[in-house]
Design a protein around this nucleic acid. Structure first.
Lengths: 131, 131
DNA sequence: ACTTGACCTTCCAGTCACTGGAAGGCTTAT
DNA sequence: ATAAGCCTTCCAGTGACTGGAAGGTCAAGT
């Protein structure tokens, strides 16, 4: 398989696949013409990486997950710990965003959004009332 | 005020303040010794920027917000539109994270997390069942 | 007067995970 | 022979900082 086909099948841009090779996540063979020659295993790894990335795992986490996947003597506790840690980070991010969302939606509601300059959003940002 | 004091008072790292000057968000005066000399207006702008950034606005949004804040002929509709757009982006991010969270927490729950290698998390990432 | 330490300055490099583009080689069809 | 559509490498840029090196300035203490 050339990079175009594997990109199509794995659902990743060719650029990303080259990047993954660059950082040592995959290591496809090379044909006589210098083209990368991907096998089914490479495709499988790339799809794995795509799904892990879609779950928000960092590249380094993905590297670890791939290593665990290929390690017959792994303990599922290692995988679970990694996933739990990531879950905690996601929860953290969500709560930060929820907090922003709360403030921001109050301000948006309070703003008339007309042709006059008075604006509770700017008033809040400038802390007009210095709370 | 030197940068240390304004950093303390605005609640921003000195590095960040220098960066904000670099990209033209603020323009403090300079003393004879080459030190930045911040006035109350600078402090006020920095605090404004800090709060806007804390609400997740991008630097470019902050630049716009600051310009609107200083523009007496602004229309509050401009501010509201910006905020609404940002709110929509936040909502989008939250829903992406919630979706990750959903899948991930199912997988974490399903994983025994013991010394055996069998792991639903890795099974899902490798799409063992090719759904 | 001298030194110490805490400030301040600029500039360069690195972060993360790509993404875009330039310049050039290979393959296949016309 | 040429055109298109692949492929290759390498370099630069993204956002919003952050760390660190190398060096100048200031205030206090001896």
């Amino acid at each position: 398989m050339n990079i175009g086909e594997v990109a199509e099948r794995a659902g990743l841009p060719a650029k990303t696949i080259r990047y993954y090779e660059d950082i040592g996540l995959i290591c496809p063979q090379r044909g006589a013409n210098g083209y990368r020659a991907f096998g089914e295993t490479d495709l499988h790894k790339l799809a794995f990486l795509g799904r892990a990335r879609a779950l928000g795992f960092s590249i380094e986490d993905c590297r670890t997950l791939l290593a665990l996947y290929q390690d017959d003597s792994r303990e599922s506790a290692q995988v679970k710990a990694l996933a739990q840690q990531h879950l905690a980070e996601i929860d953290e991010k969500i709560s930060q965003l929820e907090s922003m969302r709360g403030t921001l939606s109050e301000l948006v509601t309070a703003c008339h959004g007309d042709t006059r300059p008075d604006c509770p959003i700017l008033a809040d940002l400038s802390r007009a009332g210095e709370p």
